[in-house]
Nucleic acid binder design. Structure first.
Lengths: 237, 237
DNA sequence: GCAATAGTGTCTTTCAGACACTATATC
DNA sequence: GATATAGTGTCTGAAAGACACTATTGC
């Protein structure tokens, strides 16, 4: 351990960007800080990386412990290490990005008094309004602790970028879903309306989903067919 | 500093993937390890993050100190933190990815005896051969220290992914370049030949470069026009 | 039958690939 | 003029957007 002790060591934390959809808006899980620094501000849920666990394991542990939920899509986003980002001392944080169905996220909020689901205002680059904001109950922009506003902005950018060429959108849907629900997810993330026939052609041609033969119920109009995600194992045939 | 001291702290390092092109092959800068662990194996150049510098600053410092060169394109790639990745103890590394013109890289190698430029064998996903390999002088696959083979594979993937929608390729070219040289860069990175008229149309329509009116010299055939990159500032008109 | 949405057929537009052709430099 | 590559015109095919049309459900 000799060479490693020549340099003072920073603390390393994980921050989680837990995103979902509420109606036509993207949302994020925030936690109220109950102690300094940034007491009373909203922050991304997070925690310290233990000395004997991998970064991925730490993210999974904090997801369960701190936010009491599971996610079907977790990936590392980016590491943030400006020397002054935490007034307590040198803290480098590895941000992880996860998607959770809306229902699951709301359940977590109900079981913990310090959690909230904030809608996001997400202007496109070049558009007036600048960066990403989390909005409070009355639609007012929230001040986030640390550099969490920057982290949030990067997460949105990553989500939009991966939407077209990965199965990321399915992480926001239940196991059985209609094509309209899938299109709603894409439209909410991209914040623009999409052409229905083109959307269906494009997504179905990918082979990412399969019709089940079942139909949704409870509609007052023609019920849509329910689809399921095709796993990579299914697709090997 | 109280809360931060409740958890043992890991060491944090930077590893650099310094990539370039040699002829039609992608290359990477490797450093011979002169001490344990992995003595005698090749590794990515790297170093410890100092307690008062940002991750980006650390990457820039190590780029100059350790590899004696500058780059016009540096970006954070990913953080690796498996508990057993360094036998000396817990070390989390933040990998940075940089592109350097071939000439600059070769100059760095000549000025340091422990550096080499290794060609890469880069199979496409699904193709036989599996993962990315660095090749020695006789074309034999090199064993890399730590988890550096994994890091290298991710860097190649990132480079290929960003090629289509960013100006990343220009970082491998001199300030004035011909369209054929630009196409050669793309073909080497993607490891496939591209259609000439389509390539020209696509890249010129982006507005990323401008003709200079000058022409290359020293050819035995018709000299091609020289182009320069259009900076974002230029493009605002 | 009415209302409302599901789902499709097809025309148009856009863009990439293919290929052949013209242009221009050195020797 | 021979040669080798620069650079372009144009045909073709694939895929996205637009739009209208048919289909099917509850009431």
């Amino acid at each position: 351990m000799n060479e490693l002790e020549r340099f003072p060591r920073p603390s390393v934390t994980i921050d989680l960007i837990l995103m979902s959809l509420s109606g036509r808006s993207m949302t994020v899980l925030l936690q109220l800080r109950s102690s300094a620094p940034f007491e009373g501000l909203w922050a991304l849920p997070g925690g310290f990386v233990h000395i004997d666990e991998s970064l991925d394991d730490a993210a999974a542990r904090i997801l369960v412990d701190n936010a009491r939920l599971k996610s079907t899509w977790v990936e590392q986003l980016y590491s943030f290490g400006a020397p002054e980002r935490d007034p307590r001392g040198r803290v480098i944080t590895v941000a992880y990005f996860a998607l959770v169905p809306a229902q699951t996220l709301e359940q977590a909020v109900r079981s913990a008094s310090d959690l909230t689901v904030a809608k996001l205002k997400v202007p496109w680059p070049g558009e007036a309004g600048g960066s990403v904001f989390a909005l409070g109950q009355e639609g007012e922009p929230l001040s986030l602790a640390f550099d969490h506003a920057e982290i949030l902005g990067m997460a949105v950018k990553r989500l939009r970028g991966k939407l077209a060429y990965t199965k990321i959108a399915f992480a926001l849907l239940p196991p059985l879903f209609t094509l309209r629900e899938l299109q709603n997810v894409h439209e909410a993330i991209l914040d623009q309306s999409l052409n229905k026939p083109a959307f269906r052609r494009r997504l179905l041609d990918r082979g990412w989903m399969a019709p089940t033969g079942e139909r949704e119920s409870g509609t007052v109009f023609r019920p849509a067919e329910l689809y399921r995600v095709v796993t990579d194992r299914d697709a090997q045939h």
